[in-house]
């Protein structure tokens, strides 16, 4: 018994000394993993991504009228609705181009590691509407969820590969941070209180991704190489094309989605 006591005490002492002495600046924290927010040696320098792949996501066929959202389930939502927030963003077309399409490189160049941005991606609930509707982020990048409404929301991250999250935000001004630590495309985000509220994100292990904006335009900065570029839309599915780029190349790569197609 005394031997065991001496062993336990000395073990605690050794651990305490190790914790006190080790680490220096990192204060005993484990070394930053490759691709972490801290960046550091070995991570890819984005200034070397000199090739540009850009284009337009065209929408073929008659543009459907945006579906009107019925918000009467919550008087606050009904009162705070604006013309922008009271219609569905499922299919948003401007100048013949499809917005809210996630465009990304299917596989980043082998052997590269990437720094995770320290600044959080922000998704705001305002007027019972998610802003932005579609966004991309990197693995382990903080996701800040804000409630700007004077009503309750729940943020339900319907992840499959990542751990699903369901958080309640009962008070205006609440903020919560969500962490997604695995690559997953797409991850639906939904409010179960207000069923019309939905959003999508793509979580990537590399920085070569974007979302098409006004006119369906997008732009990716890439290092030289051969890539499969994928375009994903929540309603119209997925398309991909191969592209080869050298340093300072500028390639135009268009996609087109037809009305009536459905997502896989």
């Amino acid at each position: 018994m005394p031997k065991r006591l001496v062993f336990v005490c000395s073990s605690i002492l050794v651990l305490a000394l190790a914790a006190a002495c080790g680490g220096g600046d990192t204060s005993g924290l484990p070394p930053a993993p490759a691709g972490s927010a801290a960046g550091g040696a070995g991570t890819f320098d984005m200034s070397k991504a000199t090739a540009t792949v850009s284009g337009k996501i065209a929408f073929e066929g008659a543009v459907p009228a945006p579906a009107k959202i019925q918000m009467s389930a919550d008087p606050f939502c009904a009162q705070s609705a604006t013309p922008e927030t009271s219609v569905s963003e499922e299919i948003k077309v401007s100048d013949g181009g499809l917005e809210n399409v996630i465009v990304y490189v299917k596989a980043a160049p082998a052997g590269l590691t990437f720094a995770t941005p320290a600044e959080p991606k922000v998704i705001n609930q305002k007027g019972c509407h998610y802003t932005p509707h579609v966004f991309t982020m990197m693995v382990n990048q903080p996701l800040e969820v804000q409630n700007s409404d004077m009503t309750l929301h729940n943020i339900h991250v319907w992840a499959v590969t990542n751990t699903p999250v369901n958080i309640g935000q009962a008070v205006q001004g609440m903020k919560n941070n969500v962490k997604l630590d695995k690559e997953e495309i797409p991850v639906p985000i939904r409010c179960d209180v207000h069923r019309w509220m939905n959003s999508f994100t793509g979580v990537f292990s590399h920085p070569f991704h974007t979302v098409s904006g006004g006119g369906g335009s997008y732009e990716l900065k890439l290092p030289p190489g051969t890539y499969e570029i994928v375009a994903w839309h929540e309603k119209l599915g997925m398309k991909s094309q191969m592209v080869v780029v050298a340093d300072n190349d500028k390639k135009d790569l268009g996609f087109s989605f037809a009305a009536g197609a459905t997502a896989d």
Binding site: A73, D74, P75, F76, T151, L152, C191, V193, H194, R195
Partner: peptide, 15 residues
């Protein structure tokens, strides 16, 4: 939502 009786709006009404 940390309450005994939250506002009965949207899906909360049912749940």
């Amino acid at each position: 939502y940390g309450m005994f009786f939250p506002p009965m709006v949207g899906g909360i009404f049912y749940e």
